[in-house]
Computed example of a mutant assay.
Amino acid sequence: MMFHVTVYHNADGQFTSFRREHQLLAAFAFSRALPQNTTAEELAEWTFCLFNIDPDMLVDSCPTLDTASAFELACRYRLQRLRSLSVGDVVRVRTPTVVCWLACDGLGWSAIAPPSNVHAASDSTISTTSGSDQQRTEP
């Protein structure tokens, strides 16, 4: 099943729990084909690991079926000089049938209602991936 992930950085509350009034900025998006039983929380946790670990340590610390693609994704995130995915940030996971919004907590993730204070990146697009990940651009 194809999973589409969009990372939103919290412009108002980095390192604090997400609140509805916080402004979210779309920072990065990617798509991956994963087993149908993959949960949104598992994918959010994998994304957190990917965007916080040194890419050189990726193979041993953040196992994935496609390490080369994960390495490329982590490098693309860093090449844009994006800050780490942190407490207060939000991840949207979308499949053909479900959309799930998750806020990063101190330990794990909390499901939230779709936020209303979401803004596109300054150039109206956010980063995409290539290779085994489907290329995607979202506002």
Score class of each variant (00 low, 15 high):
residue 2 M to I: 03
residue 5 V to Y: 03
residue 5 V to K: 01
residue 6 T to F: 07
residue 6 T to E: 07
residue 8 Y to Q: 03
residue 9 H to M: 07
residue 10 N to Q: 07
residue 12 D to S: 13
residue 13 G to I: 00
residue 17 S to Q: 10
residue 17 S to A: 11
residue 18 F to C: 02
residue 19 R to Q: 14
residue 21 E to M: 14
residue 22 H to L: 11
residue 23 Q to G: 13
residue 23 Q to L: 09
residue 25 L to H: 04
residue 26 A to F: 05
residue 27 A to E: 15
residue 29 A to I: 08
residue 29 A to L: 11
residue 30 F to K: 04
residue 31 S to D: 06
residue 31 S to H: 04
residue 32 R to I: 01
residue 34 L to K: 02
residue 34 L to Q: 02
residue 34 L to M: 12
residue 35 P to G: 07
residue 35 P to V: 05
residue 36 Q to P: 03
residue 37 N to L: 12
residue 38 T to D: 08
residue 38 T to V: 13
residue 39 T to L: 11
residue 39 T to C: 01
residue 39 T to M: 10
residue 40 A to K: 10
residue 41 E to G: 12
residue 44 A to T: 10
residue 46 W to G: 01
residue 46 W to L: 12
residue 49 C to R: 01
residue 49 C to G: 12
residue 50 L to H: 00
residue 50 L to P: 01
residue 51 F to A: 03
residue 51 F to C: 04
residue 53 I to A: 11
residue 54 D to E: 11
residue 54 D to R: 09
residue 55 P to T: 01
residue 56 D to E: 15
residue 56 D to G: 15
residue 59 V to W: 10
residue 60 D to G: 13
residue 61 S to M: 13
residue 64 T to L: 00
residue 64 T to G: 14
residue 64 T to E: 06
residue 65 L to K: 11
residue 67 T to A: 02
residue 69 S to L: 04
residue 71 F to L: 07
residue 71 F to E: 01
residue 72 E to V: 02
residue 72 E to C: 00
residue 73 L to K: 02
residue 74 A to T: 05
residue 75 C to I: 00
residue 76 R to G: 06
residue 76 R to S: 08
residue 80 Q to S: 15
residue 83 R to Y: 00
residue 86 S to H: 10
residue 91 V to Y: 03
residue 92 R to Q: 12
residue 92 R to G: 06
residue 92 R to K: 14
residue 96 P to G: 00
residue 97 T to L: 07
residue 97 T to P: 02
residue 99 V to G: 07
residue 100 C to K: 10
residue 102 L to V: 06
residue 102 L to T: 09
residue 104 C to H: 07
residue 105 D to W: 04
residue 105 D to P: 01
residue 108 G to R: 12
residue 110 S to C: 14
residue 111 A to F: 03
residue 112 I to S: 13
residue 113 A to T: 11
residue 113 A to P: 06
residue 114 P to K: 05
residue 116 S to M: 09
residue 121 A to L: 03
residue 124 S to F: 14
residue 125 T to N: 10
residue 127 S to P: 02
residue 128 T to C: 14
residue 128 T to W: 09
residue 129 T to V: 12
residue 134 Q to V: 09
residue 136 R to N: 08
residue 138 E to A: 14
residue 138 E to I: 13
